[in-house]
Nucleic acid binder design. Structure first.
Lengths: 235, 235
DNA sequence: GTTAACAGTTAACGCTGTTCACTCAAGCTC
DNA sequence: GAGCTTGAGTGAACAGCGTTAACTGTTAAC
């Protein structure tokens, strides 16, 4: 009952490796159930011993990719153990962009398609969703650390409007008790970073900026300032 | 040769209407060639009299949707003929968000998928691409008008770095001769607006903000300020 | 009135995800 | 060790997909 399980785990890893290979070479459309089976010299129905459907296979691949990205970013920001928190956020943001540019197909699979609405009742608890949460926590944790080490100036409640303050306050526990204005700036950081990288990777930017590296750098400086950080000046 | 052409144009419109219907009801995956044919009571090969491939049909649908969005936004900002330019930009931004939220499937088809790289030599001249250009021109024109009416303070060249200034200057003609710093702020406006709407529509935001309307309003105020506008204060 | 062009159909090909019935080898129990 | 069970893998099949080829009517033009 042991060597049996090991063999199963091995082929399961092989399946996901083949799927990954097909994703890189042919985009998300290229990773079909039959194509994966062909890659392994198996017949298509054999894969149903490991995944209940094609969608489940893709879901497992997504979860794996999220985890890979998360650990890659953790390694990156923990490499300079004595780096200050601002530098770590800078590493995180740049690391995310580098990963996205180096693995556009994988990034597209993770962030390019629409996330299904949270079905209200039972929290959509797919492995991919959980992995995405772990990924998102990276940023929340780091921003909260930055805040608690040196609180940055943030908009007052009456500048944000009562509705927004109420919504942000509801998220306060997820941000380690930060005030609404500080959560607003953190959300701003994430929103702009995410938007920038998506636009660059998905090519929505290179009809005006063929190489968006300098623009990204300038924007990173700008959004870091809002969090009280002085990131490296652009060139 | 006249009633013939009219009949052809009519069925062509019917095809695109059916495709649109399927897009709304079943997402971009639902608008298949056979499904469109079924919707019209035709056999699948009949559609090849009107489009050389399924991809071409989707392309035509995309172009139509771009044009619909463009004219809708033009109508919106021209309804108040005497509104000042800042208010028109505000209408444009809010109109885009409203359209995206009201037509998520259409928005996903237009902006959700990756844009193919510009192939360098011959400018990718699909109808969809041209329509996207007309859409993008809406913003460029309006921002340029705002700039020429009342130039807003913008970062100096040495604040942006030589590389970025060079790239922005190359785009100067498309922005009616605006200086690099002003183009930078315009790009910033578009980038943030686009990122915000994409995140909201694609559900990447509603795990932290179930209703992003207030956040959007606050951000719109912020990015408008950078262009020297005083948009309506949040609530 | 003949001819040519065109809309549309039927049949088929190769592809996809998926299911069912089956085989064969490995592991456990008596 | 014999018998049984479990599970990995196969082959055949189904429905649906985009696409092509050959064919049938209808309709406009000379």
């Amino acid at each position: 009952m042991d060597s049996r399980d090991r063999r199963r785990a091995a082929t399961l890893a092989e399946i996901k490796a083949a799927a990954r290979r097909l994703l890189v070479s042919g985009g998300s459309a290229g990773v079909g159930l039959r194509a994966v089976a062909r890659e392994l010299g198996l017949t298509p129905p054999a894969l149903y011993r490991y995944f209940p459907s094609h969608e489940a296979l893709i879901g497992a691949l997504i979860a794996d990719l999220y985890d890979e990205l998360t650990t890659a970013l953790m390694d990156l920001q923990c490499a300079d153990e004595d780096a200050d928190l601002g530098a770590r956020l800078y590493l995180l943001a740049n690391g995310l962009r580098d990963w996205a540019l180096a693995h556009p197909a994988e990034f597209g699979l993770l962030f390019g398609t629409a996330v299904p609405e949270p079905d209200g009742d039972g929290h959509e608890e797919t492995p991919g969703h959980q992995a995405a949460m772990r990924f998102g926590a990276l940023f929340k944790e780091l921003v909260a650390q930055i805040w608690h080490q040196k609180p940055f100036p943030h908009p007052a409640d009456d500048e944000l409007g009562t509705v927004l303050v109420e919504q942000l306050t509801a998220e306060s526990e997820h941000f380690h008790g930060m005030p609404p204005g500080a959560i607003y700036l953190s959300l701003n950081y994430w929103t702009r970073l995410y938007g920038l990288i998506c636009m660059e990777v998905f090519g929505q930017l290179h009809w005006v900026l063929p190489d968006a590296a300098a623009y990204f750098e300038a924007q990173l400086f700008e959004i870091g300032q809002a969090l009280g950080l002085d990131c490296p000046e652009p060139e």
